[in-house]
Amino acid sequence: MTVPAPRARRRPSTLGRLLPLLLIGALLAPLGLLVTTNWRQTTDDRDLAARERLGVQYLKALAPVTDALVEAQSAAVNARPVPREALNQAVEVAAEVDARIGGELLTQERWAGVRAKLEALRGRSAADPLSAYTAYGEVSDLLLALHRKVRESSGLVRDPEADSFFLQDSVGQELPEAVVAAGRLGDLGTLVARRPAAEQPRGLLELTGLRVAALSPATDVVDNLRSAVDGSESTDLGANVLTPLDTYQRSVEALAAYSAPRPDTGKVDPGQLGAAALNAHRAARQLQPVILAELDALLVERIDGLDRDRWLTVGAGVVTALLLGWLAALLIAAGRRARRRAAQAATHTESPDTPLPLDPWQPPAGEPRTLQPAGTVREPETAQWGAFDAAR
């Protein structure tokens, strides 16, 4: 009977051994790309939010300059002493902020122009209210242009969130324009009242046009802030903003009423208009720091969230890479064990002449056997103990 030789195991090919590692590498490549892309996107968003905070700092410095300039213009038009100290202090603070972050926001050249105009106002005589009104108006226009530059260069104008976008639009554009226009409206009412009767109709037309320019941004401020409160997830925004916003809205309504010609005379009372403009200015002064503080708080919260997202992304990528590395190590170890077993099986197959172990109860091949009588064949175990049994 022929015994078939054992089949030798097939050695796995090189591609078969490397295929699991190639699959793991194919998983690591898109994982690394995903982590890198997410990190860059989150970093860009964080850099934008940090840059927006610089814009908020600059707007905080420009707010006192705007307030002091409007007050100085009103004093010059009404032949009162101009409060130079408040304006000088505000200018110095803004100059320090511009020296610190103006290079990054690209505002140094514009600020230099505004400051030069402000310095030129010191030597202006108060004898001509109309020329003072024109000179202060030119500086106010440059200051509003600087507000727009800060919003653009800091990225506030491109803010991606609805609540912070409405806040920055209100505090960086609409509210400064409303404050400047309200101050001009009150001062122009004083100047028109001093004109001859023949020039009154033209002055009334100027007041009507300036009235629209003052009320339009003021109304936008109210609408923007209410939209920001309605669309925000922050519980503090509404509680902090709504009270000063209501005060400002009432002052704007009063300004709208007193800036319209009276039905009985067809004229505007300059005293009431000036008081309404001053009241609107004071309400805006209370509202502006609240908006800036809330906007900065939202940006800080966003930066903290983006920092957490970045490290969560990195942590998830590291954990996944470690798991895949552990899986690769297991596959490599399993492959090594399989190769060792295959090598041992191949060695045994390639040596067929190795003698098998002998049966201890059978004589070796070729050795003569002891003749035994017929019929007395004994089992090997019984033959060994025969002499012992006979003696017993």
Results as ranks from 00 to 15, higher is better:
343 A>W: 10
124 R>D: 07
235 T>D: 02
192 V>C: 00
51 R>G: 03
77 V>F: 02
336 R>E: 09
133 Y>A: 01
17 R>Q: 03
247 T>Q: 13
256 A>T: 00
291 I>T: 04
62 L>N: 03
294 E>P: 07
141 D>R: 13
338 A>E: 11
80 R>I: 04
177 E>F: 04
30 P>R: 04
28 L>F: 04
347 T>M: 13
284 A>G: 06
213 A>F: 00
209 G>K: 02
59 L>Y: 03
148 R>Y: 04
117 K>C: 05
104 E>W: 06
181 A>H: 03
155 G>N: 01
32 G>L: 05
207 L>W: 10
43 T>H: 14
29 A>K: 03
140 S>N: 03
286 Q>L: 14
315 G>R: 09
100 R>I: 01
357 P>T: 12
71 E>V: 15
139 V>D: 00
89 Q>S: 08
375 G>R: 07
116 A>T: 13
351 S>Q: 13
48 L>D: 14
381 E>G: 12
10 R>V: 09
78 N>G: 06
223 D>M: 14
132 A>F: 03
93 V>I: 08
374 A>V: 15
106 L>P: 07
275 A>R: 11
126 A>H: 08
86 A>T: 15
273 L>T: 13
190 T>Y: 14
16 G>Y: 01
224 N>C: 00
348 H>K: 12
49 A>V: 05
188 L>R: 06
137 G>W: 05
356 L>M: 01
96 E>L: 14
66 T>C: 06
185 L>H: 03
37 T>R: 10
218 A>D: 09
274 G>K: 15
143 L>G: 04
105 L>A: 02
263 P>H: 10
142 L>F: 05
260 A>L: 00
115 R>E: 10
104 E>Y: 11
34 L>A: 15
236 D>I: 07
209 G>Q: 14
168 Q>G: 15
226 R>E: 11
180 V>C: 06
280 A>E: 09
124 R>P: 06
45 D>F: 05
141 D>V: 12
45 D>K: 13
31 L>R: 03
208 T>I: 08
261 P>A: 04
330 L>E: 12
142 L>K: 07
194 R>A: 13
294 E>Y: 05
87 L>M: 04
169 D>V: 08
287 L>G: 01
342 A>S: 10
205 L>H: 10
196 P>V: 06
166 F>Y: 10
144 L>V: 06
98 D>C: 13
141 D>S: 12
323 L>E: 07
72 A>D: 01
130 L>D: 04
154 S>W: 01
347 T>K: 11
58 Y>K: 09
60 K>F: 00
287 L>K: 02
150 V>M: 01
311 W>N: 12
208 T>G: 10
64 P>V: 12
28 L>S: 02
68 A>L: 03
257 A>R: 15
257 A>P: 03
218 A>K: 04
342 A>W: 07
363 P>H: 02
360 P>Y: 09
